[in-house]
Amino acid sequence: MATTNSSLPRVSVISDFKEITKMRLSLSVVFSAIAGYLLGATTIEVSTLILLAFGGYFMVGASNIYNQIIERDLDALMSRTKNRPIPAGRISVNSALIMAVIFTILGIATLYIINPRTAMYGAISIFLYTSVYTPLKTKTPLSVFAGAIPGAIPFMLGWVAARNAFGIEPGTLFAIQFFWQFPHFWAIGWFLFDDYKKGGFYMLPTGKRDKGTATQTIMYTIWTVLISIIPVFGFTGDLKLSIVAAIIVFAIGLGMIYFALQLFVKRTELAAKHLILASVIYITLLQIVYVADKFIR
């Protein structure tokens, strides 16, 4: 009995750490950064991969902690977030702030070891997410545009970590993940519309679950897919894509477009949930196909 009781606090600490740093989101960001690095690297250095993974996690973790500190009172109003560590009282604001500052320092320092340019983009990401995107969420649907910028940095960040330079290649990777975030977050905003409303968040472009929002979701989905196959045409520098890989990416993209169309037709929470899943599958498979294509060619 004593052993069981003594293990409970540790389990709680681990689960709270996962929650306050949004571990699944942070790991997906690390995955994007590593994919970008593998695409840009001429020689793969394991030490750089490790630094990028830890630096990326610290960077995103810091952003998420700052976000939850700022939104703690609003999080308490929503069913989805009311049990987060800060609004639930398991972690104090001061403790969370100390953790966020430590993560910020560790993240920027770790990325700086790779190269200063990578650290700079990491710092920009934290600043935009915390100081621009988070405050705008309760004021305007344009917050999604602001949030799409730091959200698109990780894929690009990996390339910059590999090449210590910004150009057409990381710019293209940035554009892919930038446009992808609109259908992804609008689908989330649609699915969680009622809960977001309790916290005063209006994430949808028209502010409503209507045809206007669904139409814009379709448009941005199509743009995402078109941008994703641009490297096949050969004018994105060292970022290349074979015809076979482009066909695969396009086919996966058609699946995402299908679910965006389904949202327009049905306009239900279930249709939005399907689009969320389709968007996650799309960006994950796209990155895998891009990397695999580089090493198979």
Rank of each mutant, 00 (worst) to 15 (best):
S279G: 09
I281H: 12
K198A: 01
Y202K: 14
L157H: 01
A161I: 00
F182Y: 07
M256R: 04
I230T: 14
P183K: 02
I168K: 04
G200M: 10
Y258H: 08
G212P: 00
F233V: 14
I222C: 09
S228L: 06
Y290A: 15
Y202W: 13
L277A: 13
F166A: 02
K266T: 07
V265C: 00
Q287V: 11
D238E: 13
V225K: 12
F235H: 06
Q216C: 06
G199D: 01
H184R: 03
L241F: 09
G167Q: 03
I229W: 03
L241C: 09
Q287Y: 13
A278K: 14
I218K: 11
K240N: 12
T206Q: 06
Q177L: 14
H274D: 15
Q262G: 02
P170R: 01
V232F: 10
W223S: 15
F235L: 05
I188D: 04
A251D: 08
G167H: 03
I247C: 13
F191H: 11
F174Y: 06
Y196V: 05
A152H: 00
R209Q: 15
H184G: 05
G237Y: 08
G200H: 08
I283N: 06
L285K: 05
P205H: 11
A272S: 14
L261A: 13
F191V: 04
G199N: 03
T268E: 15
G171V: 01
Q287L: 11
V291I: 05
H274Y: 13
L261D: 08
G167S: 12
F174L: 05
F191K: 13
K240Y: 13
G255C: 09
G207H: 07
M219N: 12
F166M: 07
I252P: 07
A271P: 09
K266V: 05
I248C: 12
V289Y: 12
Q262D: 13
R163I: 00
F191I: 04
G234K: 05
E269A: 12
S242E: 10
E269S: 15
L277T: 15
L192N: 05
L270S: 14
M203A: 11
Y196C: 04
P154I: 02
Y196T: 03
S279W: 10
Y196G: 03
A292Q: 08
K240W: 08
L157Q: 02
K273E: 14
I257V: 12
K266R: 11
M256K: 06
R209P: 07
G255T: 07
I257Q: 07
M203Q: 10
F201T: 00
E169Y: 04
L173M: 10
K211P: 01
H274Q: 14
E169Q: 07
F235M: 08
K197V: 06
Y220E: 10
G189E: 03
V265E: 09
F166R: 00
P231E: 07
Q177R: 02
F179D: 01
W223F: 15
L226M: 12
L277W: 15
A175N: 04
A165M: 08
T172I: 09
K211S: 12
L241W: 11
K198Y: 03
T213S: 13
L192T: 02
V265D: 09
G234L: 04
L239S: 04
G234V: 00
D195C: 09
Y282G: 13
